[in-house]
Design a protein around this nucleic acid. Structure first.
Lengths: 351, 351
DNA sequence: TGGGAATTTGAAAGCGCTTTGGACCCGTTG
DNA sequence: CAACGGGTCCAAAGCGCTTTCAAATTCCCA
């Protein structure tokens, strides 16, 4: 059923039917009602492409998912981010177009999306410290919102990010307050902007107490369980092992816990772990009392906010770039406790 | 730059340029070369929507992601499946359109996709035992491939699935051979077809050795870490605790391990765990020797195969439904060992 | 050398929608 | 009573592409 058929069935012109359906005022309320009823009844939906051609809008938002050629890893936060954004798109009548591309020729993909007029805007995922995509998109005039930020980018652009630096300063300080002095960092890939900021937060937290970061206690890479395990295993086997860890995600934290247990250490007593928690739906950090002490910020919410911001931008409601900086909350769970040396002192005192 | 501009710049008609670009034979090789060069140089890309309107093809595949209203969980395998499918689409020049929808009104979404001619076909995710979507899609004539199967569906349709039943028979038998008699099952939601089949495999494996499944040792739900933990904790606290577990995913297996360690049990010695492993990129099951003994089958591959199958179907190369049943391999890792009773006997014998 | 076939190109219609520029009707006003 | 204006509706153009049908050109061989 298309417009032509529907309008001939109604004995009206396509013009009138189109206007009735799209809420234009120059249609009598009576005919509008009649049109709406008929459309409903026949399950009429305007053809997406025809509508797009006519209006010049595609009613679609692009998400380009970079899959690193070396690691072949899909960011685990992706599903939840998409779910958050998808809700917004669905409500607004937008579609979400996904492109999986190996990160070597991402630029091409954006240019193609633009040239083919396939989308009205894009969400930029996983920005690096130096992020050429921002200049590229600005250049070709494709509206965009970045999930995260790019430290080296000076021009204004829209983004939604968590205050990663601050979160890791707080997490570090929290561990220092518990008496930990040797704190291992199992970070994400430090070419990624968020990981870079977390690293800075960690270092600033230590520096504030006059502690120089020990390179032997810092590791970065893709946020997998395996990385967490290997990093923790190696550090724990070192000459001066850490008494606490800072992890970039619950997944790496699970790896750290495995290493701890393999080393005969009890998490929360012999070894403390603080992790960042993206509140992934399939990896909830426990119930009433969290498993891990964590800096927590919902990536689902971030997806929602990014999508809303982008739609506003496309709608022209907003002209200048907007930014949202989300604050991560520090929730205390069962994975942290006083540093072992102190703990022993307490035990002695009690005797 | 559109066709009109490009062709006027070349001093050719739109017809000729279009034909040259699309590889039609009725163009001299000389002009074709000239056209291709100019197109390349000006970065010309045909407008997706206009092309779609003209050809009647949308060059897009839909993926409808159901987010259960109750659980608000995005299937963690989703990212990797999409990555596999996305590669195929990219190569074939297709786009991937994602729709996130709460499972209550999925049917509407499919109808809408069809009516608006937004996609040329869809991949059906997470089929249930009784799956109305199959009849619906057949009915409205939208080509589709199911990732998984629907036990109650008798009509022929295309699918890509793992032999879940067989995998779980083998896993169960493997544990029985190690002397385990009480084996806990931490399954996915058993309205889901895959979980249903795994359950059957588990029961068949037990039955083959004359063991009646104990309802106290079976639990099902969303495959989260928390579910694994709670299920294992509860079963281990019961009057006749299991000596081994079968898990539906590495994520639940991690939860089981946490419960084991909380109960002071050493995984691989005091308690065995076999899990299904979808080979998620961010949850690799260890390196040389797997962490978990597992039935292994790549969901990334499944995504690739499903996409290829669907494109063939749309291309008309294939007319009748096709099916691919993947075999899961059983890989032995560090999470399994002889049942404790036997282990003790061995120890005694050694003395 | 002429005519039919083969090769190469183009004009125009059409895909399904929106939107411009009128047309028509009717009530109001000077 | 003519002029005006608001309320409804429609014909047709146009979005950027493909494809049909036809025309123009070249080629080949009787």
């Amino acid at each position: 059923m298309n417009l032509k058929e529907l309008s001939s069935k109604l004995g009206l012109s396509q013009t009138t039917v189109s206007r009735a359906l799209n809420g234009y005022p120059e249609v009598s309320e009576q005919t509008r009602a009649r049109v709406l009823r008929a459309a409903e009844q026949h399950g009429y939906r305007p053809n997406t492409r025809a509508k797009g051609l006519a209006t010049g809008q595609s009613m679609a938002i692009g998400h380009v998912i970079p899959v690193s050629t070396r690691h072949e890893i899909v960011n685990p936060i992706f599903g939840d981010f998409i779910a958050g954004a998808g809700e917004v798109y669905a409500r607004a009548g937008y579609e979400m177009v996904l492109t999986v591309v190996d990160d070597s020729n991402e630029a091409q993909v954006y240019r193609a999306l633009r040239a083919r007029a396939a989308v009205d805007g894009v969400v930029v995922h996983s920005p690096q410290i130096r992020e050429p995509r921002i200049a590229l998109l600005t250049d070709i005039g494709l509206p965009f919102v970045v999930h995260g930020r790019s430290s080296d980018e000076t021009a204004g652009y829209s983004w939604v990010d968590v205050d990663n630096r601050r979160a890791f300063v707080r997490a570090t300080t929290f561990l220092l307050d518990l008496g930990h002095r040797r704190i291992g960092l199992v970070n994400g890939l430090e070419t990624m902007d968020f990981a870079h900021r977390r690293r800075r937060g960690y270092e600033q937290g230590l520096a504030a107490r006059g502690i120089t970061p020990d390179p032997a206690l810092m590791r970065s890479g893709e946020m997998t369980e395996a990385l967490g395990f290997e990093a923790a295993r190696d550090m724990l086997a070192g000459p001066a092992p850490p008494t606490a860890f800072l992890a970039a995600s619950i997944i790496s934290a699970l790896g750290i816990r495995r290493a701890a247990e393999a080393a005969g250490l009890r998490v929360g007593r012999d070894l403390s772990i603080v992790t960042h928690d993206d509140e992934l739906s399939y990896l909830r950090n426990g119930g009433a009392t969290p498993i891990f002490t964590a800096t927590r910020s919902s990536v689902h919410t971030a997806g929602r906010l990014a999508a809303e911001m982008l739609l506003q931008q496309i709608g022209g409601d907003v002209t200048s770039p907007r930014q949202i900086l989300l604050e991560a909350e520090l929730v205390v769970g069962e994975s942290t406790g006083p540093a072992p040396a102190l703990a022993r002192m307490f035990d002695t005192a009690k005797d």
